[in-house]
Design a protein around this nucleic acid. Structure first.
Length: 505
RNA sequence: GGGCCUGUAGCUUAGUUGGCAGAGCGACGGACUCUUAAUCCGUAGGCCAAGGGUUCAAAUCCCUUCAGGCCCGCCA
């Protein structure tokens, strides 16, 4: 079975063009001007044709034929412009070539002069044109465009061809990442690349993707975080490091989650979690100001305000505020009773004060955290890589940033006591062996690295995809991922269930 | 894992007491030398996501499956 979208009429035209000796897929074109440059340079042009010649190229979006003249709109990555072709000027052969064989979707190069039509539109009066690529698939409708979200995600190229809004979103994404790099470079952080294929995964609690290296005959995991490798670099003497990395987590897909997603992780020696909260605030505040041009934006029905400083609450304070209880004063029995009374999920199996604290925070607090808010001082139970709090028993120096109810960043004073780290990873490993699929493995090489001595270090990870969502106003992660993960459209196409496949054509 | 919703021509879609599957754009043929969702005349294009059931009759009602969207759970 044929899974192509090739259109027979277009294929026929392509064959006819070849028979006429036209090179349908030539190799290059001397494009000297972008659409944007032309529109700027001739913004004040009147009806008379320019002296100056322009040459540009792009995709044909619409063709309007009028007998012996043709209007067409072409677009490149900078915008769209109208073309005007006349039989008198092009000559019969060229004009008929355009008339019969150039369709919406084709890519052409044109040379001509600029003028303004009676209707006031800046237009290229075409002296000659060249077919640069013949499109053999039909373009969606010119007015309504491509709306179907599944097609927009599965055939993102088509979405980008048709929808300026999508192009704008991904331009913003590129700009956000570029500004982030620039911000960190300007402050002397070094960017490194650490392994994506890891023999031992770590740095987060999540289920990994597994794979196998044939030559080593060994199991490998796709990283769930770069954390443990970046800390090795701090041990090695790089004081300020970061990595913008894809992480992979074998978990469910929804509006906030994709199995592969982009994080920036930053580590800085001689800093603690307070410094990292400040840094996070600076980075995100800076990006918001540069991308939005202001400190406010609207997201999923909320008016967000990024003006600094941002609110900071300990987790206990958040529970006091949103659950209305004096957590530290309550006994374990009282906590248990309170949890059951309010139907807090997970309370049946909770055993420690720390577990109750997290459960209550998630149940009562998280959804209220609309404006940028740091929550800090997390229980030690679920923070195996964070340093024990300098003064509060049972807590760690860990923070998370919440915006619009989403977890945006996670950081801590990094645990650098190798004995403590060994003990905590052993606890994690025990949980993992008991069936906790998200508990961490023991990475003895990482523990040994700490054994050589890691300076006091602060670290933070910021979710780039969610940040792009905020700054572009998109409330689904799929709208900010060029190629969101989807189920294979054609059964058997990827080698799964080969017997059902029809790939033998 | 639970709930709600969607799937009709290449695209955007109409289609209820169940009664011949329609339109616009696009495509194809024709007319037209300042149009811009060009206009005008004509033609072709559909296993109504797939499978099963109810019925004289199913795009429409029921069941199953597939794909997608949204919400909840899970994801510390």
């Amino acid at each position: 079975m044929d899974h192509t979208c090739f259109d027979t009429a277009k294929i026929d035209k392509l064959q006819e063009l070849r028979e006429r000796g036209v090179t349908v897929y030539p190799y290059t074109f001397d494009r000297r001007d972008t659409v944007e440059e032309i529109k700027e340079r001739f913004s004040t042009i009147e009806h008379d044709k320019s002296e100056e010649e322009v040459s540009t190229a792009g995709r044909v979006y619409v063709v309007r034929q009028h007998g012996k003249t043709i209007f067409a709109d072409v677009g490149d990555s900078t915008g769209r412009i109208q073309l005007y072709l006349r039989k008198n000027d092009l000559g019969e052969e060229q004009f008929d070539l355009f008339k019969q064989y150039v369709d919406a979707g084709d890519i052409i190069g044109v040379v001509g002069h600029v003028f303004r039509t009676k209707m006031g539109e800046i237009t290229i009066w075409v002296d000659r044109f060249e077919l640069l690529t013949k499109s053999v698939c039909p373009l969606p409708e010119k007015f309504h465009g491509l709306k179907n979200v599944e097609t927009r995600y599965r055939q993102r190229y088509l979405d980008l061809i048709m929808n300026e809004e999508s192009r704008e979103t991904f331009r913003a994404r590129s700009r956000i990442i570029s500004l982030l790099r620039q911000f960190l470079f300007e402050r002397d952080y070094l960017e490194f690349e650490t392994p994506t294929l890891q023999p031992i995964y770590g740095g987060a609690n999540a289920r990994p993707f597994t794979t196998h290296h044939n030559a080593l005959d060994q199991k490998l995991y796709l990283r769930i975080a770069p954390e443990l490798y970046l800390k090795r670099l701090v041990v090695g003497g790089f004081d300020k490091v970061f990595e913008i990395a894809k992480n992979f987590r074998n978990e469910d897909i929804d509006t906030n989650h994709n199995p592969e997603f982009t994080m920036v992780e930053v580590y800085e020696a001689y800093h603690d979690y307070n410094d990292m909260m400040n840094l996070t605030e600076e980075i995100l505040g800076h990006l918001a100001e540069r991308v939005l041009g202001t400190t406010t934006c609207s997201f999923a029905g909320h008016d967000l305000d990024f003006s600094r400083p941002w609110r900071r609450l300990t987790m206990e304070e958040a529970v006091r505020e949103y659950a209305g209880i004096d957590f530290p004063a309550m006994s374990l029995e009282e906590l248990h009773a309170f949890g059951l009374e309010h139907c807090v999920e997970g309370c049946e199996s909770a055993a420690t004060r720390g577990e109750y604290l997290v459960l209550f925070f998630e149940h009562f607090g998280e959804k209220h955290l609309i404006q940028p808010t740091f929550i800090y001082d997390f229980p030690i139970e679920n923070s195996p890589l964070a340093k024990k709090h300098r003064s509060k028993e049972g807590l760690t120096e860990r923070f998370e940033l919440f915006i619009a109810g989403m977890e945006m960043a996670n950081g801590f004073s990094e645990l650098n006591d190798p004995l403590d780290q060994k003990a905590r990873l052993e606890q994690q490993d025990a949980k993992r062996r008991k069936g906790d699929l998200e508990a961490q493995m023991i990475d003895y090489d990482f523990i040994n690295a700490l054994g050589y001595g890691m300076p006091p270090t602060g670290g933070v990870g910021i979710g780039i995809d969610r940040l792009v969502m905020l700054l572009t106003g998109k409330d689904s992660i799929k709208e900010v991922l060029l190629f969101p993960q989807m189920k294979t459209a054609v059964p058997g196409q990827n080698g799964d269930k080969a017997e059902e496949g029809d790939g033998e054509e």
